[in-house]
């Protein structure tokens, strides 16, 4: 029954003519880093269009200085997608963790460190619920995580009393917004986490096991990989990253408005899928995601410079998501046929 479509056998294998090493390396680099080139082109075009005198260096600095949780959130999504799971709940978990820190610290008078721990514990609890329902009971992951997203996001409103909770000690904000080499700490945290996850996924047995669980669970299981543990781990890692994002954002801003959380859903998915066209083409990978995230932020920033705001952002992210998925699909087809 399975042989009706996409017969995966080919007999007339064409051995490509030898290509000079230089050309091969450059082609390889081009296919992996085309997104970076596109990014630079986009930046230059935008700068040419923007009235006034904005230097490229300043523009880049502004892009990298955005206080945004997208890299953290997208890193969690990369992990869950890589093992073949689907996690929509990150926006809700992010929201409740971000609200928990100021609520516990300011409204309930907890020490900040304890409030941070509390936020992380809450995030992990939601991750555990996801894992138990999806991996343990085998319920559809889209449905479960859509539900936990809504529950966590709703509880965030309850915890905050339906308003913006603020009043965290402003000196703490330096943890996130303090600068190192001219860029905020938040940026560096994101880079460090991405590098760590990229190393785990690319160079350790655990990473390879994740790839196989995502690619074909039966194969993984017959090779002795505990598929369930890998999947549970992915949900917990995703929840932990969403929780961390909540913590650093609320500390950086001194508080958090839970209504703003769902705005991160689309940029996150767009970054994750656009990331599959870069660095390791055709696979969910953290470095590609990092490049894609800042590519998208640059795009929105440019649109803002041109005086376009509001609806344009959403259209931009939506279009980017669709284009990213389409290109990645075509890429995948080229790799496997």
């Amino acid at each position: 029954m399975t042989t009706t479509q996409t017969p995966t056998t080919t007999t007339n294998i064409v051995i490509p003519p030898p290509v000079s090493p230089l050309r091969r390396i450059s082609m390889n680099l081009l296919s992996r880093y085309a997104l970076v080139i596109l990014w630079i082109i986009m930046l230059l075009v935008l700068l040419a269009l923007v009235p006034g005198d904005v230097s490229p260096v300043n523009a880049m600095r502004t892009v990298f200085s955005q206080i945004t949780p997208v890299v953290f959130l997208a890193l969690g999504v990369v992990i869950t997608m890589a093992v073949g799971e689907f996690d929509l709940s990150f926006a809700g978990i992010f929201s409740i963790a971000a609200v928990a820190v100021p609520s516990l610290a300011v409204l309930h008078g907890w020490p900040v460190l304890l409030a941070v721990l509390g936020a992380i514990v809450i995030a992990l609890a939601f991750g555990a619920i996801n894992a138990a329902l999806v991996v343990g009971l085998g319920i559809n992951s889209v449905v479960v995580t859509l539900g936990t997203w809504s529950v966590a996001g709703g509880l965030a409103f309850l915890l905050s009393g339906e308003t913006t909770v603020s009043g965290l000690d402003p000196t703490l904000a330096a943890i996130s917004t303090g600068r190192f080499l001219g860029l905020p700490h938040l940026f560096w945290y994101g880079v460090i986490l991405v590098v760590i996850v990229a190393y785990i996924m690319g160079a350790t047995p655990i990473g390879r096991h994740m790839t196989f669980v995502g690619s074909n669970r039966a194969v993984a299981s017959l090779a002795g990989i505990s598929v369930g543990r890998v999947r549970v781990g992915a949900y917990l890692a995703s929840a932990l990253l969403a929780g961390l994002a909540g913590v650093v954002i609320s500390i950086g801003n001194g508080g958090f408005n839970p209504a703003s959380a769902s705005a991160y859903l689309l940029p996150t998915f767009a970054a994750v899928f656009l990331g599959t066209v870069a660095v390791v083409p055709g696979r969910f990978n953290p470095l590609g995601m990092l490049i894609a995230a800042y590519f998208l932020i640059t795009g929105v920033f440019g649109l803002q410079l041109l005086g376009l705001t509001g609806w344009v952002t959403e259209v931009f992210y939506g279009a980017a998501l669709i284009i990213a998925v389409t290109v990645s699909h075509l890429l995948q087809r080229r790799v496997t046929s």
Binding site: F212, N216, V219, A220, L222, A223, G224, Q332, T336
Partner: peptide, 22 residues
């Protein structure tokens, strides 16, 4: 079932061959 259980067809030869010994 070679495709269903034997090999991850979207991954490379090396990744598949070395999986049990990682």
């Amino acid at each position: 079932d070679r495709h269903g259980e034997g090999l991850a067809t979207g991954l490379t030869v090396q990744e598949n061959v070395t999986l049990p010994h990682l």
